[in-house]
Amino acid sequence: MTEVLFKVIIIGDPTVGKTSFVQKYVNDSFRRDYKMTIGVDFALKVIKWSEKCNIKLQLWDIAGQERFTSMTRVYYKDAHACLVMFDLTQKGTFQNSVKWKKDLDQKCTLMDGSPVPCLLLANKCDDIERREVTQDEIEDMCKEHDFLGWSETSVKDGIMIEESMGFLIEEMMAKHAELEGFSESFQTNTSSALKLGKEEGGKPSGSNCQC
């Protein structure tokens, strides 16, 4: 049994639903009155990916307020993938997701120099009446700024949470295989979870950060 460790960061403006998303995905619970994140929150989910492979997914829920970013950038380090989230009912958060993406690309790349795979999530799609962003706009932005893809989600109603994460994990697994080839010296077939976990979290498939 092999165990692969992936680190995923979730960024985006405040109140778009990052904490709710993580809690929904990890604990399958939803609350309206989550406290804001000050600094960084951490969550872990272990996924049985196949008969032979378990995935340990570290989710780093990063505070949205701008002034904290000087302290939270450290957590971009070694990220294998990223979720940029915005709120469909607040156009400003959609526009800012470009900033978040640029910021990420500036600080981090994967080991082979490619940008960190990044999924754009348009949250609160259940609130149709207050929706301010059209699908075409999201599509355009997604293409223009090299997002891996985008999806509408509703944490409240549990729409497209598992699917989005599943998509991202597949992407990370593909990248993982690719990078294993890229760095032969780190190619592993060991069954030692800890050793592999450490390697995964470290140099081989992690990212290069200048932060």
């Binding site: 000050i38 600094g39 960084v40 302290m71 939270t72 957590y75």
Partner: peptide
């Protein structure tokens, strides 16, 4: 483990009220 100090950020700046 490179823990940093961010774990204590909300403790200190909110005087633990958070």
């Amino acid at each position: 483990n490179d823990l940093g100090t961010i774990f204590a950020l909300s403790w200190v700046i909110t005087w633990f009220s958070h």
